[in-house]
């Protein structure tokens, strides 16, 4: 499994998958995709990198422990919900901000998007935690 070809292409594959996962995440509100799928793709990317380059390498690349990402995601989702308190609407009510970019298109920022990014991080963090823990346990033996 751990062939030289795999080891060589794994970093590129991982990078591509992470970029793709972000793309899937951001288009999720209008096209198929979203935080859950994006998170799973990103987690798979990290798992692949872990298998090819070793868990310690991945941990170094991630800087933070993967479970931290999950915690950050829940926090982000909760904050997205709490924003509604500032405009005196119920918890988790979606708020939208449309910024006109001048060339006829507009940029839509919203709390549901923030929430979806939170979901992305939770799935990414929790599942890569699991995968890395199991891979590492193998290395430890």
């Amino acid at each position: 499994m751990n062939t030289i070809i795999f080891r060589t292409i794994a970093p590129y594959l991982t990078a591509l998958m992470v970029v793709f996962s972000i793309f899937v995440l951001l288009r999720g509100h209008n096209e198929p995709g979203g935080g859950f799928i994006g998170g799973l793709i990103a987690a798979s990317a990290i798992a692949i990198y872990g298998i090819s380059a070793g868990v310690s390498e991945v941990r170094r690349a991630l800087v933070f422990h993967p479970i931290t990402f999950a915690g950050f995601g829940v926090l982000m989702a909760a904050i997205a919900g709490l924003m509604s308190a500032f405009v005196d609407v119920p918890f988790l009510m979606g708020l939208w901000l449309f910024i006109d970019l001048g060339d006829g298109s507009e940029l839509a920022l919203s709390t549901p998007m923030l929430f979806d990014i939170g979901v992305y991080f939770v799935v990414l963090g929790a599942i890569s935690t699991i995968a890395l823990a199991l891979e590492e346990d193998e290395d430890g033996k």
Partner: peptide, 12 residues
């Protein structure tokens, strides 16, 4: 403001 109804249900 979302066209993917499944995703809108989930996040909104």
């Amino acid at each position: 403001h979302g066209r993917n109804i499944v995703n809108v249900i989930l996040v909104d």
